[in-house]
Nucleic acid binder design. Structure first.
Length: 317
DNA sequence: GGGGTAAATACTTGCCT
DNA sequence: AGGCAAGTATTTACCCC
């Protein structure tokens, strides 16, 4: 099905050195720091895990080069510091165990402190950057609006602040953050879509999502159907009057506590459908269903309930 | 097109290890 | 922490008017 999208992306090869993004044809930017090539527009990562071949330090002679050149595992995007987890030893010895000459000690000492600072201070930063990159990439692939991305970033940052990341994968958390954000903004996407673009299992995303939302006390889902009304109203192109009417219906529904456990989006869609009839704009259940992604069944059920409580209320008043 | 129903699925929650 | 099971809501597919 939609797997093809993901696959094509993975297939994007290094040797291609394309000038434009295969998805949105934006320009490609090289990001040396992350060892990635990314699309400037949509943030699509074309080539993760490319090894940064540039020198980390300047070397003035062969000895120095031996001391400082990188040895160790290739970088990986999966660990916050990309796997550069080697430390500079505390002994003033070079790789052959020879004692380093005095004049070099000072420099070596400086390198140590620099290395240390670099790793502890920037670890969080890089973690964050990577997660944010993931978020933009996924959000682009899922066609989510920008502000959802923003929220996801905020959620993720809060998660970092509260140390929720320990023992959890960045990608999982990033996906969960985006999922949460999408729901908060009333533009939810099914969970499987997220797992498709992130290569994280559904269950993991859900778990991470539940965990974060509980720990952060996120109030997920607008819980308020009213927030869906403007969106739906505009996509369905109904009059202001009908919109107002729909909101009215929802307000009474809320005071009558009809809406607990029901999906807010469904309620909103139903309210719009109902109001379009009250104002003689006669939308069909079909069109409402298509535009809002709410099934006809739900629209029917909810709108009947809505009208019930609405009438009851107008009788009593 | 409106309306209904049954079976399949999705999502949540609580329980258990 | 993580997996399973039960309960509720939603979707899907078909039906009739």
């Amino acid at each position: 099905m939609e797997n093809t999208q993901v696959d094509e992306r993975k297939v994007a090869e290094e040797s291609h050195s394309e000038r434009s993004c295969p998805e949105c044809s934006g320009s490609i930017v090289r990001d040396e720091e992350h060892g990635e090539k990314t699309c400037k527009q949509c943030g699509l990562v074309l080539d993760e895990r490319r090894i940064d071949r540039g020198p980390e330090w300047r070397a003035f002679d062969s000895n120095e080069r031996d001391e400082k050149s990188r040895v160790g595992s290739p970088t990986t995007g999966l660990i916050h510091d990309k796997g550069l987890s080697t430390k500079i030893g505390w002994q003033d010895k070079d790789a052959n165990g020879q004692t380093v000459a005095d004049r070099k000690r000072a420099r070596l000492q400086r390198l140590r402190t620099w290395d240390e600072r670099y790793r502890v201070k920037d670890a969080q930063e890089r973690n964050l950057k990577q997660a944010l990159g993931e978020i933009t990439r996924m959000s682009c692939a899922l066609d989510l609006p920008d502000f959802v991305e923003e929220t996801a970033a905020t959620v993720y940052r809060q998660g970092v602040d509260k140390d929720l990341l320990v023992g959890r994968s960045i990608e999982g958390m990033a996906t969960a953050a985006l999922y949460a954000a999408a729901r908060q903004h009333g533009t939810p996407r099914p969970l499987w879509k997220f797992s498709e673009v992130s290569r994280v299992e559904k269950a993991r995303i859900r778990r991470a999502y539940r965990y974060t939302s509980r720990e952060l006390g996120l109030r997920i889902e607008p819980a308020d159907p009213l927030e869906y009304v403007p969106q739906f109203a505009s996509t369905l192109g109904i009059s202001d009057e009908a919109t107002r009417q729909a909101q009215d219906l929802l307000v009474t529904a809320k005071t009558e506590a009809i809406h607990s456990g029901k999906s807010p989006a469904g309620l909103a869609a139903a309210a719009i459908y109902a109001s379009s009839h009250l104002t003689n704009e006669q939308l069909t259940q079909e069109t409402v269903s298509n535009r809002t992604n709410i099934s006809k069944v739900v629209i029917r059920k909810r709108y009947q309930e809505l009208l019930d409580v609405y009438e009851e209320k107008s009788h009593s008043s």
